[in-house]
Design a protein around this nucleic acid. Structure first.
Lengths: 251, 251
DNA sequence: CGCGTTGTTCCGTATTGTGGAACAGTGCTG
DNA sequence: CAGCACTGTTCCACAATACGGAACAACGCG
């Protein structure tokens, strides 16, 4: 064991409990003042603590950064990113990552193709679950009561082609659930088609969706649906495996 | 600077970026394998990393614990707790802490008096803003558009005495805003009275509320309102000062 | 102004952290 | 099945790094 490291973490624990100056912290961890000052200076250097009020110490941004690096959302983004990039490299259309957020899908990442005629950037935006493939693959696995509540609410029609009839949606979701993917043809926005598949966590729950979208005039190419579908499903499964490796302790 | 500490944090950063075994991590930080193994063993000892899949390392629960110790909600709970305890010690009634959560107040902490005839525990529950003093002191400082939207919605009457008339509420909120506290007499639940004052953060925003509540038959005692009010207002202000000391960087 | 307290810095030294090497364990291939 | 490559674990001699007492500056209070 490395003593200085253990001492530093004891200091970190006390600082987190109650920010203070060097002398008080030293008393609380029962170490000499100069030792504590030196360790605090080093902890400051690595952003684990920061100064306030002249010479008082509190936890610094480095701890939040370490924690954020393994947060569930960031885990998903990091796990999915290389697979989004692979999809774009092969299919030459944009690929994105969506998370469920209440009754909506929120887009949290996107990799763009180098095609000059593109669809706009969606990251940061939201869409109703029923109107986009990413939403459909997640809705397909909602418990009955939650799905009933959703379908009993207002179902926005974003284009002429958005499916808003609850009965038709139920039947569709049943197919989506069995197939493990969903296509949407100009249902969210005129001129945009897309296909999505769910990312599953270690317990098999659908926790996010990977999708590929493109302008309707060229996507999907004639006869291209099966191949594109397969690739998206594979990419989502691979992202799920990567996600498993990254996940925080369940305890 | 303490070299071993800096090395340990370099390792932590890499582990957070991508969990791995000793050899890969050592390559990434460009240190000898045995040094990295020793530092990882120590980081494991302090819960900063943990093992998975036999001999792979990832960030451990200690980082989340450090981070949680300084989260905004926990900051509030920790800052307010001693003041809740003081209030209970003096007034011999329960004191609680409420946070705004959308259109509701959510109770996140409570200290109980030792009086044998008590009001039930509210921690973890929610209440509509307009029906409880804690909500009123927060509503009183909402921007006009948000307040308009709230008052234009459904205002639940929880008892005969709950004020649900928007005009009466507006006038009341004006008084609450000027006074800096609010009393509620059997408006949330029959037989329960309470008084609340806002906790303000470093910028002067009302971010939470401290309240004291008791059975209506004995609280407030005759003539006791002014003194109780003053104590609650003081406690909330003191909690705000403590909160300031604990707050995370704004960056 | 004197005093007590906190924060900062320095320096000699010994203790603690180091890193190369040995070895156990594992998986893959011919 | 044996050999090989690779990873993870442990040990030990030693020197580099971490240590802590002491000096001193700064600050607030009576």
């Amino acid at each position: 064991m490395v003593q200085s490291l253990e001492r530093a973490f004891a200091i970190l624990g006390e600082v987190a409990r109650r920010p203070a100056g060097v002398t008080a912290i030293a008393e609380r961890v029962r170490l000499p003042k100069s030792t504590v000052a030196r360790l605090l200076a080093t902890l400051e250097d690595v952003d684990a603590v920061e100064r306030f009020d002249g010479a008082h110490w509190r936890i610094g941004p480095g701890v939040a950064a370490l924690n954020a690096a393994v947060s569930p959302e960031r885990n998903l983004i990091v796990a999915a990113r290389p697979h989004l990039a692979d999809l774009v490299g092969e299919l030459h259309e944009d690929a994105g990552l969506g998370l469920p957020d209440g009754n909506e899908i929120r887009y949290v990442d996107q990799v763009e193709s180098d095609n000059p005629v593109q669809v706009r950037e969606w990251t940061g935006t939201r869409a109703p679950m029923h109107a986009v493939p990413s939403g459909l693959v997640l809705l397909a696995e909602w418990p009955d009561d939650a799905l009933d509540a959703y379908l009993g609410g207002e179902l926005a029609a974003l284009t002429r082609r958005t499916v808003t009839d609850p009965a038709r949606l139920r039947a569709r979701l049943h197919e989506v659930c069995e197939a493990g993917y969903a296509w949407g043809l100009e249902e969210f926005a005129e001129g945009i088609d897309s296909v999505a598949a769910p990312i599953r966590d270690a317990r098999g729950n659908a926790v996010a969706a990977i999708h590929v979208h493109g302008p309707a005039y060229r996507f999907p190419p004639d006869g291209g649906e099966p191949r594109i579908t397969a690739r998206v499903v594979e990419a989502a499964a691979a992202a799920g495996r990567d996600l498993e490796e990254r996940e925080l302790p369940r305890a």
